[in-house]
């Protein structure tokens, strides 16, 4: 049997959902793989919704809003774009980014919706089943997705993404405007750090581990793990556990 992907779509009420309805009214055919969740605005799409969908086995997730500038709520789709970009950057770390997509469909673009869904379905088909889906999902991938969901939900990432437009387009609290390049540099670093920190937290959930063990499991340098441990300790998220010989272990708080 050929692979039939499970695809979840988040559609805004005013443009993309209307466009999807128009495809129906015009009887434009597209593959029956997509299931749709309607929200009022694409800006409502919390990053965790996208990751959660992947965690429960979606092979692909598509977020659709009004064209930029057309948002029924003025600028919600710009906010959606920022949040989506963050999720995508996280997913890139585990090579999952091509399973999610953000695009725009207006209420008059039934044909565009139909062809977009057809194309996205085909694209997911060529990628094959998600390792996080099916009857025997890959545990490690699930752990990674969990870390991403938590990292994306962390107050640090949410604050960064929430302030991005204000910081880069207007000014920060000191009256400075940060260039987009500079912001992206900080942002990309934060993505990597927070992902690893939440991976560490995930691994420590079951049992206490040493820095060395963590470094081995995560395939990153132990000095970097140590830095993360210091940060996590200062945030009150981990603490020292028992000593394994002379090696201290950490456990999650």
């Amino acid at each position: 049997m050929s692979f039939e992907p499970k695809i979840l779509g988040f559609l805004c009420n005013w443009c993309s959902y209307a466009g999807a309805d128009l495809a129906g009214v015009s009887r434009m055919q597209y593959p029956p793989n997509i299931r749709v969740i309607r929200v009022m605005c694409s800006g409502r799409i919390d990053p965790k919704f996208i990751v959660e969908a992947l965690r429960v086995g979606a092979d692909g997730v598509i977020v659709l809003g009004c064209h930029l500038g057309d948002c029924h709520y003025l600028e919600g789709n710009y906010e959606a774009e920022k949040k989506f970009d963050m999720v995508k950057k996280f997913l890139k770390l585990i090579d999952f980014d091509n399973r999610v997509r953000l695009d725009w469909v207006s209420a008059s673009e039934g044909a565009r919706y139909a062809s977009m869904i057809t194309e996205f379905t085909d694209h997911i088909k060529t990628l094959g089943p998600s390792p996080a889906g099916g009857d025997n999902p890959d545990d490690e991938i699930l752990e990674e997705l969990k870390a991403i969901e938590e990292a994306a939900g962390s107050d640090r990432m949410r604050a960064l993404v929430g302030r991005e437009r204000k910081i880069t387009e207007q000014e920060n609290v000191y009256g400075e405007t940060v260039s987009l390049d500079k912001f992206n540099e900080i942002f990309d670093l934060a993505i990597k750090d927070e992902y690893n920190r939440h991976r560490i937290l995930g691994l420590l959930e079951k049992e206490s581990k040493s820095v060395k063990d963590l470094a081995k499991e995560l395939k990153i340098d132990s000095s970097i793990v140590l830095e993360h441990m210091i940060t996590l300790k200062s945030r009150g998220q981990v603490d020292f556990g028992e000593l394994l010989g002379i090696t201290p272990t950490f456990h999650k708080l």
């Binding site: 005013w14 443009c15 209307a18 009004c66 064209h67 500038g69 057309d70 029924h72 207006s106 209420a107 008059s108 673009e109």
Partner: peptide
């Protein structure tokens, strides 16, 4: 109309509501 000037809003999108 398809779109409207100068915002290039999709006409029916803003009118339908």
């Amino acid at each position: 109309l398809d779109k409207t000037f100068p915002t290039l809003d999709c006409s029916i999108c803003i009118l339908a509501p």
